[in-house]
Design a protein around this nucleic acid. Structure first.
Length: 203
DNA sequence: CGACCGATCGTCT
DNA sequence: GACGATCGGTCGA
């Protein structure tokens, strides 16, 4: 299956990219072992003009520097000291757009994902929530800066097409105190899919 | 099912 | 020294 090409990530419209990432497959291959899942939920962060973005007003720190990399780079950071959150950097180098992947529907390597998540039975909490999916796929903050065209972490098109009417836009999660842009509808989910955070299925 | 809270630590002020 | 783009457990209704 083909990896998404660089040109997918280099585009200007981060909202369009976030929407198109629904139905694509996020894949990791560590020590020769593959785990993967279909992206069901993603949030766009529109760089320097987005008050909810880590790169708002051009902020550059050791952590956020990776956001200024070329599109198709992984931006992974730690939240609340525990959770590793995976983002896709988009747009040209120096333009810090990113898409946070918030949930996937498991596909390959479910046994290994359960082991990583310390779960005896599979359930909807296996890969819903940004920290949970990263743990299931073995994504760690040390992978920040990883190129998504390499053989470690990548995104594939497997021909799944999500029709427009099955896509919902809502407010982003956990950014209510981030000011002006907190209420923007930059979160995209596949309507009716149970592998979604804050879904009745996974509580 | 909702509300609350503790965990745990890198990052930034 | 405060706090977070979260999670999972507990408590109470």
């Amino acid at each position: 299956m083909p990896k998404l090409p660089r040109s997918f990530y280099l585009r200007e419209d981060v909202l369009q990219i976030a929407e198109e990432l629904l139905g694509k497959f996020l894949v990791t291959k560590f020590n020769g072992v593959i785990t993967s899942g279909m992206i069901t939920e993603a949030e766009a962060y529109a760089g320097v003009i987005d008050s909810a973005s880590h790169a708002f007003r051009g902020r550059r720190t050791n952590r956020t520097e990776i956001m200024y990399s070329v599109g198709g780079t992984a931006y992974v950071y730690i939240s609340y000291g525990i959770h590793h959150l995976f983002n896709v950097v988009t747009n040209l180098k120096e333009i810090p757009h990113a898409v946070l992947i918030r949930a996937i529907e498991p596909s390959e390597g479910i046994e290994l994902m359960m082991k990583r998540r310390k779960k005896k039975q599979p359930d909807y909490t296996l890969t819903t929530g940004p920290g949970s999916l990263a743990q299931a796929l073995g994504i760690h903050v040390r992978h920040t800066g990883s190129d998504l065209l390499e053989e470690k972490i990548w995104i594939e098109d497997r021909g799944v097409k999500i029709p427009r009417e099955k896509i919902y836009r809502t407010k982003r999660i956990g950014v209510e105190n981030s000011g002006r842009d907190a209420g923007l509808l930059y979160r995209y989910i596949i309507k009716g899919n149970p592998w979604i955070t804050r879904s009745p299925f996974n509580r």
